[in-house]
Nucleic acid binder design. Structure first.
Lengths: 225, 225
DNA sequence: TCTTCTATCAGTAATATTTTCATTTTATAA
DNA sequence: TTATAAAATGAAAATATTACTGATAGAAGA
């Protein structure tokens, strides 16, 4: 996910960028108004973090510019001010959330996740399929109300299945989407068997239905029927 | 739960009241010394949040007044000062906890919860867990009747653990509560390992049980089982 | 100053995850 | 039915992640 960070305190900007790198976010930093405007116009971001007090102009104006250019971009205002008025102003110009300094990066992270969730699935990223409840944001799964731990691969695999329900998926396409392209160009795909096996086992263990069907010669199909 | 908030910064007071309303706390606000004294004398509160710097007098005196009137009332000092001396003074006059500005409402909330938990143990500030005797007021610990010295961090860590028995605590939440916000924004949490190590060592040395369990991938859990 | 406490680090251990592999079972077409 | 390819299975090896330890240097207090 691409994030635009417009913040003149270099230390803070660096901390944020460093914190989010392992989260898989790529953070583009602008240190003043002009830089922020330029980057916002040139690139497409899914999320922008905008400080209100910037050299060269007000963050509030940037919020409007970003929103006009790409209405889908989620915007979080960062501010040192405490007043409630600013909060209302910020949200009225199109920002989606507001956080005041000082803050914990963990909290900023939570807010970004929550925002993305709201954006992506018009309200929530929680997918309910019979006895399965999948929270794509927190990567948490519940089966019959009980929380169940899935490994990274298991979760991604499950997610790929449920976002392609009732369609036969080739092993090639599964690997491509779940494992990405850092795979030595379609050698041996047998490891999928093991992962499907583990996923099925875990689903069965907690009493979920037998949704993952094998499609001989092709791959698999997630089907409720 | 009834909370008395004595704070002259109106914005902050409003934020606190607004934050706690949905938590089910009813917050009474006083904006200066006199108002605070009057409310404390008229009503019974389970918890008081007292700013040290108040128009009309020192919050420290209010702490004594409140404590004399109702010794069961939990008191958290709010202060803009950074010094440790203040902290010690505050705790000696009868306050139970101390939080410095600026702080996150979530942290204040956590401290109130934790304080209430400690109070509930038996009304006094002495917590007995098998061979452990912890006096939260004097910050003294006895193990099998023998007094044992703990450093500040060790004591706070132990206290946080026993206030959250049988619950897995993430490293993040531990740092947030024990180290507070004077931390360079949640980079590396490895130092926890050392403190847990030292705490475990000291407990073991004096013959206490092995109560601090590791929870792989999460953090720790204080458990008597 | 000297001592104690705290934080950081590197090396090691423990645990979890992913992949590989040999074997067995199953499905399909001739 | 039978030959064959595909899929499932369990175990074990290879990786990756997380936790622990001891040493140490810097910070804070006495």
């Amino acid at each position: 996910m691409k994030i635009l960070l417009i913040e003149d305190e270099k230390d803070l900007a660096e901390s944020i960028a460093a914190y989010f790198a392992p989260e898989g976010y790529s953070v583009d930093t602008a240190f003043n108004y002009g830089e922020g405007e330029e980057k916002a116009n040139v690139n497409e971001y899914e999320c922008a973090l905008v400080d209100l007090m910037l050299p060269g102009g007000s963050g509030m104006d940037l919020v409007e510019i970003i929103k006009r250019k790409n209405p889908k971009c989620g915007i979080i205002i960062i501010s040192a001010r405490q007043g409630v008025d600013d909060k209302i102003n910020g949200l009225n110009t199109g920002a989606d959330d507001y956080i005041t300094k000082p803050f914990h990066l963990a909290e900023l992270n939570a807010r970004i996740k929550s925002l993305m969730r709201r954006k992506l699935f018009n309200g929530s990223s929680i997918i309910v399929i019979n006895e399965l409840i999948i929270d794509t944001g927190n990567r948490e799964v519940k089966i019959n109300e009980a929380p169940v731990e899935f490994t990274r691969r298991e979760f991604d695999l499950l997610l790929f299945f449920i976002s392609n329900q009732e369609r036969a998926l080739t092993k090639e396409s599964i690997t491509e989407h779940v494992w990405g392209d850092n795979l030595d160009a379609f050698g041996n795909l047998d490891f999928i068997y093991t992962h499907v096996k583990n996923l099925r086992k875990k689903l069965k263990e907690y009493g979920a239905g037998d949704y993952i069907k094998s499609v001989y010669g092709i791959g698999y199909k997630f089907s409720l029927k």
